[in-house]
């Protein structure tokens, strides 16, 4: 069995308007590695993340997404979660009236397909909260309802830590965070790091990569991965900007 998340020549459009967003994305994240995807606004990074998670508002027109060698294209979002996928949203959705902890327990039970005792659940929560340097008051609040931007991001990481996915996509979890919050989020991701965890770290800035050192960096522009490299690529990007990659993409391909 191949232990990896593979995006193979993925083409996709918006279901309603037909606008084409992804134009042949190729990407492999082996289990045990963390890859960064960088790129300018509008490159299609969030779209890629949502399509991997199964967002029905997009339509895949060609290509495939494989988890450990198995295509997940036909699966519902919840079935994908049960295959071990997790998406930390760039804009986590507010769900008023639904308690954060109650929801998370339901999600964990749905994912595991069995009842999770209060004890075990509480245990998982405690570990996550401790790593994230957070107190319990966040648990009884309604899901993302009235959360600050930073709280929303941190809560996504908390969910990830409790649900323990095999492959996580973190969509700009670093944006809008001050340096302390950024360090806390990085701590959460690094705590997950290990042979049974792979992640795609979508980011606009190099900054977070100082705290979560990626195994590889990919640059996405206009619906494609235009170049890939090691952690040094992120630094070059920071210095020289995306214009430089654009030229690289044109001349290099």
């Amino acid at each position: 069995m191949v232990n990896q998340l593979e995006i193979r020549n993925l083409h996709a459009k918006i279901a309603d308007s037909g606008e084409v967003i992804l134009k042949g994305v190729n990407l492999v994240v082996p289990k045990g590695q963390i890859h960064a995807v960088m790129g300018p606004n509008g490159a299609g990074k969030s779209t890629l993340g949502k399509i991997i998670a199964g967002d029905p508002s997009y339509e895949v027109t060609a290509g495939d997404i494989l988890v450990d060698g198995e295509s997940i294209l036909e699966l519902e979002p919840d079935e994908r979660a049960r295959k071990g996928l997790f998406l930390a949203f760039q804009y986590p959705v507010e769900v008023p009236g639904v308690s954060n902890a109650n929801f998370l327990r339901l999600a964990l039970q749905a994912k595991k397909g069995e009842e999770v005792s209060m004890m075990e659940f509480y245990d998982r929560l405690q570990r996550a909260l401790k790593t994230l340097d957070w107190d319990e008051s966040i648990l009884t609040r309604y899901l993302n309802d009235g959360f600050s931007g930073g709280e929303k991001k941190r809560n996504e990481i908390m969910h990830m830590m409790v649900l323990e996915p095999t492959y996580a996509i973190l969509d700009e979890t670093d944006s809008g965070l001050d340096i302390d919050a950024l360090k806390v989020v990085a701590k959460g991701v690094n705590a997950m790091r290990g042979p049974n965890f792979g992640a795609l770290l979508i980011t606009h800035y190099q900054r977070i990569l100082n705290y979560i050192v990626p195994d590889a960096v990919h640059v996405m522009m206009d619906g494609r991965i235009v170049t890939s490299g090691g952690p040094e690529l992120a630094l070059q990007l920071e210095e020289r900007g995306y214009e430089w990659v654009k030229e690289l993409a044109v001349t290099g391909s």
């Binding site: 199964g54 997790f86 639904v98």
Partner: peptide
């Protein structure tokens, strides 16, 4: 989609939203 992507089947996600609403 948000609730479903965390593992809840669509029906349950919808029921949860309704419960939150009331």
């Amino acid at each position: 989609f948000y609730l479903q992507s965390r593992g809840l089947p669509e029906d349950e996600a919808a029921a949860l939203i309704v419960r939150g609403f009331i």
